[in-house]
């Protein structure tokens, strides 16, 4: 149902030329970027979101623990959701539409950097959802916190400058959704005042991923000791 968000932004720009100084093309590029990184996450890692239902409630996590492999790695890679790759395609088309309209010419290096930034952004999604999903090791919840976080993902599709300061701080430092689309997009869109944030993206990804793995390990340990 990612398509609804796309239709919203498309309809909005039928009557609205710009959004607080951001042109339609720039908004489309950021939006597309968020769809690509989110789509990658959904396609390759969204089995993670099944942790509470399929693994803990249905008891498949025991099977995971029996194998001599990292449990996080096993859960994440156990299934690929190819049907979610449509989100990536939608995102890519939005990005290329924006690029062609802005007449921006990227060289091979630019594409490579953008690709790296997309991977970093996808890693941030992975980290955020890993932390949330790990909570189900302790709390008996059926993933409704995850649904809130999916809702909050809507905030990553727009320039953070449209939000007030509190929200901006949250999206930058606490739940780093601003790094999943807006900041990395600034590399291609060439807004130099954000370049420091562009280069922070991989670092944020690594920091949050390490944090996430730590939380997962503690959670899996808690699961092993209670077995519930």
């Amino acid at each position: 149902m990612q398509l609804i968000g796309v239709l919203f932004i498309v309809s909005l720009f039928v009557k609205v030329p710009s959004l607080k100084g951001w042109h339609k093309e720039e908004i489309f590029f950021i939006f597309g970027f968020s769809q690509v990184s989110l789509g990658l996450f959904f396609t390759f890692f969204s089995n993670l979101l099944e942790l509470s239902e399929r693994y803990i409630i249905e008891g498949n996590f025991d099977r995971i623990l029996l194998r001599p492999l990292n449990s996080f790695f096993q859960v994440v890679t156990e299934r690929i959701y190819w049907e979610e790759s449509s989100t990536i395609l939608v995102g890519l088309s939005m990005m290329s539409y924006a690029l062609s309209r802005m007449h921006l010419h990227l060289n091979a290096g630019d594409y490579l950097v953008t690709f790296g930034l997309v991977l970093a952004a996808c890693t941030i999604y992975l980290a955020i959802f890993t932390i949330l999903v790990s909570l189900t090791f302790w709390f008996n919840d059926r993933g409704s916190v995850v649904s809130v976080m999916l809702m909050l993902e809507g905030f990553s599709r727009y320039p953070v400058t449209i939000f007030n300061r509190v929200v901006r701080v949250i999206l930058t430092f606490i739940i780093p959704y601003a790094f999943t689309a807006f900041f990395p997009s600034m590399y291609v869109l060439g807004k130099n005042k954000y370049s420091i944030y562009v280069w922070m993206t991989p670092a944020v990804a690594l920091i949050f991923l390490s944090l996430a793995l730590l939380v997962w390990r503690q959670g899996a340990r808690a699961y092993e000791s209670t077995g519930s």
Binding site: V148, F155, V167
Partner: peptide, 23 residues
């Protein structure tokens, strides 16, 4: 779940608020 759904709705409304304000 209802409580979480409540939070989700408030988030959507907040996002729309900022968007329309920008518009």
């Amino acid at each position: 779940q209802v409580l979480m759904s409540f939070v989700s709705y408030l988030l959507i409304i907040a996002l729309n608020y900022f968007l329309w304000k920008a518009v």
